[in-house]
């Protein structure tokens, strides 16, 4: 029995040791950034991203390193990626806005006053990440199940009423969080952003170099991705710009 336990422990430990992590490159990248070696920081952090590691802060730091290195397009791309995971972070929003201010095709503020109700809804919508919302949804569903079973088993009418009364607010919260999570999933599944990462990207009328150049987008310009195929990204920017750009000249926010 002891041998089995020992073997089990060793197997679990080997799993933990073998589990991939990117702590070392992240720490080294931070050190390089502190020393002002932004290229090295980019290289180290980019390695983690390419290995499939995902973190809003990692994307944000990578955005900062690109920004310091003078590559505003990539900086905006990674700020947007960080915001996709954590849309309410003020630092992400600040740096994105700051980087956008340095692009040629600046997005001007329309100057309209922010609607406080809509603003509150937006904040509440982004207060929790989608992952957290899904966990809460599961927890509420199981709590409702438990309360419902207790209600069925309970013979005391007063207890039954209390349990019924507890289920309704939980169901309401479940509905609100479910709606918010559902909308996030809808946006995630249907709307993808892209960013121009080179100084100027030509927008072509078709997915080949032989097509006509319709427009040129400058570095850092954010557009809507309609689709990706064979080295070309079909994009849309407002009502006027609609065409294809090379995947090598843009980054898609993931």
């Amino acid at each position: 029995m002891k041998k089995i336990l020992l073997l089990g422990f060793l197997f679990a430990a080997s799993l933990v040791v073998a589990a991939p992590n990117c702590k070392s490159p992240i720490a080294q990248g931070s050190l390089a950034y502190r020393e002002g070696n932004f290229e090295k920081a980019i290289e180290l952090w980019q390695t983690c991203v390419e290995q499939g590691f995902q973190s809003a802060d990692l994307y944000y730091n990578l955005g900062n390193a690109y920004f310091r290195d003078g590559r505003v397009g990539f900086a905006i791309l990674y700020y947007e990626s960080a915001l996709r995971l954590n849309p309410a972070n003020e630092d992400y929003l600040h740096n994105l806005k700051f980087a956008q201010g340095l692009t040629k095709d600046k997005v001007e503020e329309n100057g309209l006053e922010e609607n406080p109700i809509l603003s509150a809804f937006f904040k509440a919508h982004h207060a929790l990440s989608l992952e957290t919302q899904l966990h809460i949804i599961l927890a509420i569903v199981w709590i409702i199940l438990l309360l419902s079973i207790l209600r069925v088993l309970s013979a005391n009418p007063r207890t039954k009423s209390i349990l019924t009364g507890s289920v309704f607010p939980l169901a309401l919260i479940l509905g609100i969080i479910g709606f918010s999570a559902g909308y996030k999933i809808y946006v995630m599944e249907t709307f993808h952003k892209g960013v121009v990462t080179v100084k100027s990207a030509d927008v072509m009328s078709g997915p080949e170099d032989s097509y006509q150049t319709l427009n040129a987008l400058s570095e850092g310009t954010i557009f809507e991705v309609m689709g990706v195929r064979e080295g070309w990204v079909q994009i849309r920017l407002g009502e006027k710009v609609n065409g294809f750009v090379k995947t090598t000249e843009v980054g898609i926010v993931k």
Partner: peptide, 19 residues
């Protein structure tokens, strides 16, 4: 200027979204 870098605590391998 831009704000500072953050301490990365939760870098995990990209997983299939929970949903």
């Amino acid at each position: 200027d831009i704000r500072f870098v953050h301490e990365v605590k939760d870098a995990t391998l990209t997983q299939k979204p929970m949903f």
